[in-house]
Amino acid sequence: MSAVDPDALQQHRSYLVRYAILQLRDPHLAEDAVQETLVAAIENRSKFTEQSSLRTWLVGILKHKILDMLRKRAREPQLNVAEGEDENELVDALFKENGRWASPPQTWNEPEQSMENTHFWEVFEQCNRRMPLNSARAFMMREFMEMSTDEICQELAISTTNCWVILHRARLALRECLDLNWFGNAR
């Protein structure tokens, strides 16, 4: 009896959907990616070895499905337009002309403890969703899917330098959002 039966798969479904939404930012696409993942899991169930957990194995398949979808969407030009992102607006707002912080980052109080707080994770997800699409996509590939910078550049068809710039902007945006909405350093 294989560990990969439909009942076992369904137990992981909602987790996989949440995972896919974070990367794809579209519930319908996320559902499609998860559906394809579950079908692929059934078809390939003989390849599942119990050395890894079922969830880890499913997430591995899901990552491929997510990348396939991002690739397909990248080929549709109307969806590839950067939604009016002003690339340098954030950086310009954060630094003065002489290169100093416009307002230097303040200490965060007990950040490690935040990780125990469910509400913190909600704020973190909201901050992710608020990032400009390109930044969020690259950032989530890097940190959430743990892809290498080279893989991300290839996937997004951008230069390495551009990739670093986008990732940096994403971290700046996320830092600002957490600073304001969680650590309460409102200015």
């Binding site: 980052p105 990780m115 959430f144 743990e146 971290r171 830092r175």
Partner: peptide, 21 residues
């Protein structure tokens, strides 16, 4: 000091994002 705070916060952001799954 501002950049030292930023350095710590980047480390925290990496940790949090990798814990998210």
């Amino acid at each position: 000091k501002g950049c030292r705070n930023f350095e710590k916060q980047l480390a925290f952001i990496r940790k949090v994002a990798r814990e998210l799954p």
